[in-house]
């Protein structure tokens, strides 16, 4: 079982990213995915956490995730604090929305397997949200599918198209672009070994 934790801010579509992932896994027929939102007092801009468990079969474990195999950070400002790295397994991955080069990202978050996904740039290129608060959720969901081998490109593309309330084509294009960007950094085998 692979356990992921998402960090974002209210209004960024963090929970929707986890839901899209669950739908993509179902469409790909590769396993089972449970997407769990952490509900606090909901307001725009407040830190938001969501979780996803991916397994070969039905998931019975229904607690929150305290020791994730990987964390996905949608809001780069949130990655400056300690919360996103709390409980991350040794050798676990940090997937962060950032324009940093692989080398610079590795230096910025030492001791972790870091993958920087230019989610913000991809979102703005496809006109998803204003520059101050770009909507990076669909790009990051696409990247996560590629990084962990959770779903093929067509499955994530159709899951995105159906899930978003507006701009289905732009969101799909963002997910595809991030998927292609992330593919060379694939982490699946290393993480499956860690999960075992």
């Amino acid at each position: 079982m692979l356990e992921l934790r998402f960090h974002g801010r209210g209004g960024q579509g963090t929970v929707l990213a986890a839901k899209i992932l669950a739908d993509a896994v179902l469409r790909a027929g590769t396993g089972w995915c449970m997407a769990i939102p952490e509900f606090g007092v909901e307001r725009r801009g407040a830190p938001v956490t969501a979780y996803a468990r991916i397994s070969d079969g039905p998931v019975r474990l229904r607690s929150r995730i305290y020791r994730p195999d990987a964390v996905v950070v949608l809001d780069p400002a949130a990655a400056r604090g300690d919360a996103p790295l709390a409980g991350l397994k040794p050798g676990g991955a940090l997937v962060v929305n950032s324009d940093l080069s692989p080398e610079a990202a590795a230096e910025r978050w030492p001791g972790h397997r870091v993958v920087a996904i230019p989610g913000r740039s991809i979102a703005l290129k496809h006109r998803l949200g204003p520059a101050a608060t770009p909507l990076v959720n669909t790009a990051m969901a696409g990247a996560v599918c590629a990084l962990f081998g959770l779903a093929d490109e067509e499955s994530i593309a159709s899951a995105v198209r159906e899930a978003v309330p507006v701009k289905p084509e732009a969101n799909e294009a963002a997910a595809r672009e991030a998927f292609a960007f992330a593919l060379p950094f694939r982490l699946e085998e290393a993480l499956h070994a860690a999960a075992r």
Partner: peptide, 10 residues
């Protein structure tokens, strides 16, 4: 509440 009501699964 939330654990089932808001959790997505197949």
């Amino acid at each position: 509440g939330f654990t089932l009501s808001h959790t997505y699964e197949p």
